[in-house]
């Protein structure tokens, strides 16, 4: 309510270049990490190695679609790991009993939608903090998976379509990367050019203003969390295809890395700023970092320290500060 100052036309200039810088930063980080990888091992120059990393990055990247949306609306989804495992277990078993592709994929989508709705119930309807709520849902899903696997033994029968999507090749390019590219184009387009995208940014920028402007909050929350659930479920199926079986704990590596991918990708943890383009670079960065650390014989514990510290540093520098 202080003094009114006239708008300074010059200010838009630096702002614009700042946003370009912001979009370029994740790719710059990726380039640096890749260079480090090459220094660590010349293998990273071969297409064979790159291809392997690309498949891994595609899995993280697909999951990061939902995580990006959740973070853009100012929340987070930590129920991904056990959504992946539950889907892997359940869908492959169902497929073994009823060998039709659509059964497996239908089951996966069903699980994803259900998880998304439960997440939305807690976060939007009950207004529980999303970090705590989705972490609890993750525990719940872990419980359901354990109960389920106690009754049904895991199977190595995997739908061929899942296998193809995870391991297949289109010419010299992995099918997973193609799938990732298609999904990425859809998400980036949806965020930029649809009313839904506008609603996501509006909601993440200021929920009260969004409410006062007539943005349909419930619908947006539902779309975001259901997308996240479905993407996680889909990756669960792909991962079973990738290892030709589903196993307990197959989703364990998907708690922190998707969040790290989104944050490295330049989206603000408080919501409203960022996009999926950066998350693509983020997903590759995360995978390359992990691969490099493994190449350097860094233990799993030390890798966790590195990732936790990187995320903390990014949050401290500019991404997760408290809103005033």
């Amino acid at each position: 309510m202080s003094a009114a100052t006239e708008a300074q036309p010059g200010r838009a200039g630096p702002r614009l270049s700042a946003s370009i810088k912001r979009a370029a930063l994740p790719w710059l980080i990726l380039a640096v990490v890749y260079a480090l990888c090459v220094i660590a091992s010349a293998d990273f120059l071969t297409w064979h190695t790159i291809r392997l990393q690309l498949i891994q990055a595609a899995f993280i990247g697909l999951v990061a679609i939902g995580e990006t949306l959740a973070i853009l609306i100012g929340h987070i989804d930590l129920s991904i790991p056990w959504t992946i495992t539950l889907t892997g277990m359940f869908a492959t078993n169902l497929y073994a009993a009823h060998p039709h592709e659509w059964v497996a994929f239908g089951a996966a989508i069903g699980i994803g939608v259900a998880v998304g709705l439960v997440n939305m119930l807690g976060v939007y309807v009950l207004r529980v903090n999303s970090l705590i709520w989705t972490l609890s849902i993750n525990l719940m899903l872990q419980g359901i998976t354990l109960i389920y696997t106690n009754a049904a033994a895991p199977t190595t029968v995997v739908p061929p379509a899942a296998k193809f999507l995870a391991l297949g090749m289109v010419g010299d390019i992995p099918m997973a990367a193609v799938l990732w590219a298609v999904c990425a184009i859809i998400v980036i387009g949806a965020l930029r050019f649809t009313p839904f995208g506008r609603a996501v940014y509006a909601l993440g920028s200021n929920e009260l203003v969004a409410l006062l402007s007539g943005v349909r909050l419930a619908r947006t929350y539902a779309a975001v969390f259901i997308t996240s659930g479905v993407m996680a479920a889909l990756v669960g199926l792909l991962l079973s295809g990738y290892s030709s079986q589903a196993y307990l704990g197959m989703g364990d590596d998907y708690l922190l890395p998707p969040v790290a991918a989104v944050v490295i990708g330049g989206s603000r943890l408080a919501g409203g700023e960022g996009g999926y383009g950066g998350s693509i670079a983020g997903a590759m960065t995360v995978i390359l970092l992990e691969a490099m650390l493994i190449t350097l014989n860094v233990s799993q514990g030390e890798r966790e320290i590195v990732f936790g510290a990187i995320l903390l540093a990014l949050a401290f520098l500019f991404l997760g500060r408290r809103r005033r």
């Binding site: 903090n129 966790e304 320290i305 936790g308 997760g320």
Partner: peptide
């Protein structure tokens, strides 16, 4: 840094130290 995010990150650091 927001408490939830901060302690979520440090939890990985501490877990990593235990694992090491």
């Amino acid at each position: 840094v927001a408490p939830l995010i901060a302690t979520f990150c440090t939890s990985f650091v501490y877990a990593g130290i235990s694992l090491t």
